[in-house]
Design a protein around this nucleic acid. Sequence first.
DNA 1: CTGAAAGCGCTAACAG
DNA 2: CTGTTAGCGCTTTCAG
Lengths: 329, 329
Amino acid sequence: MPPVTLRDVARHAGVSHQTVSNVLNGHPHVLATTRDRVLAAILALDYHPHQAAKALREARVTTLCCTFCGHDPENIDDPYRNLVQSAFIAEAQGHGYSVTTAFIGEDGDLAPLRQRFLQRQFGGTVLVGTTLTSAQLRTIQGWSLPTVLFDHALPDTVSISADYAAGMAALVQRHVATGRRHLALIIPVADPGSTSVERREAFLQACAQHGVQGRLVDGDWSYASGYRAMQALWAGDHPPDAVLGGNDRMGTGALRAAHDLGLAVPADVGISGFDDFQFAQFTTPALTTVRIPHGDMARHAVRALITVLGGGTPPSRVVPLSLTVRESA
Amino acid sequence: MPPVTLRDVARHAGVSHQTVSNVLNGHPHVLATTRDRVLAAILALDYHPHQAAKALREARVTTLCCTFCGHDPENIDDPYRNLVQSAFIAEAQGHGYSVTTAFIGEDGDLAPLRQRFLQRQFGGTVLVGTTLTSAQLRTIQGWSLPTVLFDHALPDTVSISADYAAGMAALVQRHVATGRRHLALIIPVADPGSTSVERREAFLQACAQHGVQGRLVDGDWSYASGYRAMQALWAGDHPPDAVLGGNDRMGTGALRAAHDLGLAVPADVGISGFDDFQFAQFTTPALTTVRIPHGDMARHAVRALITVLGGGTPPSRVVPLSLTVRESA
DNA sequence: CTGAAAGCGCTAACAG
DNA sequence: CTGTTAGCGCTTTCAG
């Protein structure tokens, strides 16, 4: 049997197909009795409006794109995307939008995203991730694609970010308070992505303020890079007495390297992460870290994007971060 | 400026709009010179076909749904979804399909999924997850929604699964070979989801074959449940000498509990996982586990779904699993 | 307050 | 090989 259309409903209810449309879209001037008859027919026939037809006629698209930027999609081996995306989808559905997901790589091929937008596969996007270059961003803005930035905070954009500087300051404070005097931060050192920059600068500044040594070691957010960074540090002449992973994965890699180096944590060296994913509670020792409320941020981002689509300009937002002290530092 | 349509291209190229359509859809009978002119116009005007219009006319939808079943979406704190979904999206895009993501909870509210399907928001779905009930599945099949099962293997369905029985047998074999005689498997004990059943039964059978004791302890796939299960085991009278986590998270939770219990791993007790996510390499000690090729499975599932959409009946598939021996067992 | 007409952008069917 | 005609399912005019 062919799918039921609006005209079928109209016929069943004994009204014109227009009236059905009016009922569906909550137009004011419909007799209550007529409306009830139409509603009954809709239920009876199990009618569902055809999205594509509606979108075509209304020249508007009710799909939002959640775009993850800059990383090898298969290599984000932590729950970051899970958390961001599930909150994103739940929030979007609550507002009547559906969600599609896209990836843009570090190589920066934006063509597929552009094409999908121009084909009207989605109406706007949240750009998620720490490694979107400003050149890429400018390109995207040139398409007049409604955009909200997630985990970036750049001028002249709508963005949802976290107070990485404050989080990092709290962490440095904690290490200093537990007697550390020589800290090392594992972080992508050449990465211009704004959260890296923010963490690096806040780290160096906090170290300076406390009058302790602070140095940067390269990492690429992976467990393995945290492990390697730790080894490199101890292969050098003046190993630090505290190592800060730029995220929980690198912190965990460093933890494991400390074990292999015969170092006791936190006795010999303090180690911390950044994210507070569940696994940070189950490492040995459990990871001291900074909690990032990814889900809340994602929900904010969706609401902001919907506002942008409606022609508004929502305020950018910076959520506060809190330190979670466990065993490792 | 209004978006450029097919008629604009036609005008620019000096042909009828139909000819443009023919060129776009690769219809055979178009003069090469005409085609080139049309192609040039498309490029010049930066034309992109309107998806919704195309879908409406062709009565076919080029969106696939990736449905995750049965878990609290925000609580899958491992990279399972990352891995499945990124491979899924990459494969789908390679075939010209876009992807939308849905969740269905354990409470079993299928209405939103059904509504989205009836509104033609997607053409078919892969059902991902271990806790879809067969009642839910039958309901979904009743909608004549083209469906492929992922991580299930039920009769009369197209499914992509893994050889969990063989993987579990290899793991038990390994524990027995390292001298263990009393094994415990942490797994949702009452879960009727087929991969749980498969793992449980294969475990019990392998233990029987080797003539060793095998028992089941309840867990819910989370780190915390692995931790609790381990504690419960050692609170009892006859603790085992090997503990098998039903997944890597529960294995990791058990590892941490062993540490807190003052147990040396693997000297006092062997511990293993199941998945082989990256973090299994960085626990202390590193987790012996069974590698599941989630990405490959996801790619198979997409191809199978596209075949189903085309009216075919692809064969179900069971991928082989391999043991990864590390330090913990 | 309800019905008839028009058309969103596209493609299938036919005629030229 | 190319152009014309029709209509997918819906909503926005505008008369009745």
